[in-house]
Computed example of a mutant assay.
Amino acid sequence: MTTARDIMKPGAQWISQDETVARAARVMADLDVGSIVIADENERMVGIITDRDIVVKCIARGHSPETTPARDLCEATPRWIAEDADVDEVLDSMEVHRIKRLPVIDGNKRMVGMISESDLARHLDDESLGDFVTAIYGRP
């Protein structure tokens, strides 16, 4: 059985919800990733922001990335998956919620990695990957 741990990129990072959007962008650039998890003071996930969120929800609306708190870009209830979840559970969660990145947590509810579209592309067969792409991009 292939699990979330098997396909995730290990070592995902997070920043505090009180950090600025500019700080989030710098961390994303340093890590060469397109998203970062935002956590509260208890290191609990409050959301994920993406490079697109920074452009569309902050810069395009005339807000300053230097002063806007990262938490202001988090909208939806954060989704995550257990590290021992089967890959079918991973796909189902991502497809149902139409999300392209999914944090992976361990038994202590600590983030241990992140699953992205590129991780799926490296680990899924063509049919499964095609079904995922259709579910995410093929519906209005």
Rank of each mutant, 00 (worst) to 15 (best):
T2I: 09
T3N: 01
R5M: 06
D6G: 05
D6E: 00
I7Y: 02
M8Q: 04
K9C: 02
Q13R: 14
S16H: 09
S16V: 03
R23A: 05
A24P: 05
R26Q: 12
R26H: 12
M28W: 07
A29R: 14
A29F: 12
D30Q: 12
V33D: 06
V33S: 03
V33A: 03
I36P: 02
E41M: 04
G47Y: 12
V55R: 14
V55S: 14
V56R: 13
C58Q: 13
C58I: 10
I59G: 14
I59V: 15
P65V: 08
T67N: 05
L73F: 05
L73V: 10
C74T: 15
E75T: 12
E75N: 10
T77P: 12
T77Y: 10
T77N: 11
W80K: 11
A82V: 04
D84H: 09
A85P: 02
L91M: 07
L91Y: 04
L91K: 07
M94G: 04
E95W: 00
E95Y: 02
V96K: 15
H97I: 00
R98W: 00
K100R: 15
L102R: 08
I105W: 06
N108M: 02
K109D: 14
K109P: 06
G113Y: 02
M114A: 05
M114R: 05
I115H: 04
S116M: 01
S118Q: 11
L120K: 00
H123T: 03
S128M: 12
D131T: 14
A135D: 13
A135C: 03
I136M: 10
Y137S: 09
Y137L: 10
Y137P: 08
R139N: 13
P140V: 12
